[in-house]
Design a protein around this nucleic acid. Sequence first.
DNA 1: CCGGGAGGGTGAAACGATTTAACGCAGGTT
DNA 2: AACCTGCGTTAAATCGTTTCACCCTCCCGG
Lengths: 344, 344
Amino acid sequence: MAPVSIRDVATRAKVSVGTVSNVLNRPEVVAPATRDRVMGAIEELGFVRNDAARQLRSGTPRAIGLVVLDVGNPFFTDVARGVEDTASEAGHAVILCNSDESAQREARHVELLAEQRVHGVLITPVDTDLAAVHRLRERGMSVVLLDHPTTDPGLCAVAVDDRAGGELAVTHLLAEGYERIVMVNGPSRIHQARQRHEGAVDAVRKAGRDESVLEELKVPALNVVSGQRAAEQLLARSARPDAVFCANDLLALGVLQVLVRAGVRVPEDIAIVGYDDIDFAAAAAVPLTSVRQPRQLIGRTAAELVIAETMTPAEHEHKHVLFAPELVVRESSRRVQRPRRRAR
Amino acid sequence: MAPVSIRDVATRAKVSVGTVSNVLNRPEVVAPATRDRVMGAIEELGFVRNDAARQLRSGTPRAIGLVVLDVGNPFFTDVARGVEDTASEAGHAVILCNSDESAQREARHVELLAEQRVHGVLITPVDTDLAAVHRLRERGMSVVLLDHPTTDPGLCAVAVDDRAGGELAVTHLLAEGYERIVMVNGPSRIHQARQRHEGAVDAVRKAGRDESVLEELKVPALNVVSGQRAAEQLLARSARPDAVFCANDLLALGVLQVLVRAGVRVPEDIAIVGYDDIDFAAAAAVPLTSVRQPRQLIGRTAAELVIAETMTPAEHEHKHVLFAPELVVRESSRRVQRPRRRAR
DNA sequence: CCGGGAGGGTGAAACGATTTAACGCAGGTT
DNA sequence: AACCTGCGTTAAATCGTTTCACCCTCCCGG
């Protein structure tokens, strides 16, 4: 119950505090007999290092910060998991912050992280201007941008090629013979939304099709509810599309649900392609074709970068890692031979 | 760039370090003129408190730990969000740990949190024996059990009445006229799994039915894949159940998917009830009946408790908060008008 | 017998904040 | 004139580690 310090351990083991510290940090320099004695004392007293004191003296913190846009989105959850995995392997704690796409909350969290003197910060910035990010850097923290490409050579970034992903999706749909494609997309202030749309346009162009085969339908947020709304709009039309490409899987799931409930067959009547390949995509009533991003890998890579940067700040080269997305084709977009197949 | 300490600020503002500290912590005791001067210096130098030093001296940390079973499960994600919200309002950081249902990982994380001298720990323990929890308490940390009821008067707990939830679900199924119910459940080492099953049994008993109407099918984990496996097993049987109650929504989604793909109509042939009421439950192809738990509220309450406990340890009364679950009936379990049929 | 490693330890300074006792000072009471 | 009383501020002690310069002892070669 009473807090036990390194000094208590020293007394108990009849050595000096310096020796205890050595046992803890450089066991090889202390004689086996002494080492065992100290270890024994640590065990008996239930001593736990005080990381605050440790950090204060050594200057090297053991936590990293993670600021995401929305912990509720499985995409970020998986990224977080990747971060958590490598961080804990390296003995680091992860401080999770949820900016909820609010610059104000982001700023508050960044402030907190600065006070905690975290090892580094992994952040998906709310704004494109990166104001918060630069303040962090001025304070000498290493920052890795998550899922937000940049040309700034002063920091690391880990992202996925969203433009290529958009192209993959639409190229696939065109190849399957779909000709009236609607892209359900988020607001263009969101970087990913813009890029994915550009990729979709690229696909149309490269396929030599008329640009009228692709239409963009914007929705306010990238979540299930927005997808449902979008699908309702599409259903109300006289000329329905034959395929829908959604900017993320949450949208796609919303669209899918509304279509299925309205008796529209997927993919016979309307095909759907999502983005992110979250676990729920494969588990949907009609398994969803989706553009897979290496979510955990993004997290792991980012964590490794930030740890590497702070371990060897001198020789560190800032990297911009760009992963390639991958199309996972499932039933929701496969051209089927027999258009009808009904359950009893 | 160079780390600026409270001493630098003091020099700059021509006061002593003590005064700067007062400005920071008890602004009212220092004369307005001096205060402004100090504030100015802080601003100019871009000073940020070093929380490690702060904590070392004052002994009051500004972070709380959160250990969950699975960050990938939207249930925990929502709880985490609640925790994060109230913690950040109170100026606390949240250290997120994912035990992945492994006692070993849990132990490692708990160790890390102990070293960080966190304010308190919110934990959903992996094991029922609470070994890890007791070690924390021995070290003088306040602990709040999350979603894990206990009779231990020595700690706070926030949970939902799982037994009542199980009873709600099965009572509903029985009332709708289902008579061969399978509960797809997790391993009984998981507390929630046991409780929900007991509740289910209660429901059968209270309804005066024969206990044979309810069967338990155990699966190794509470996730989508396990649900799929379970559904495959059920499909292979000669006598299929007419309703399935799943210990959580991930299982239910897995079951739903396999059933629908096999041409089984939900709920006409087999009804499904899930647990947790995650957002994806409502958005499933067949909207899922589920037992709702106040997820964010659980998180908020737990965070408040742990903060309160450490603020005023003396007068703190350990509380066991037990929320009531609520049944949300959707299409997956509504008895439709049609003649009753017996299995082949 | 002396100088010099090497191996194994020691002890105090330092890290950056908080906290507390003490102090100087102005004004008001006896 | 002596004595409080508050207020604003200061200086010093303190928190638990790490680090670094230094001290023994023992042993070996010259």
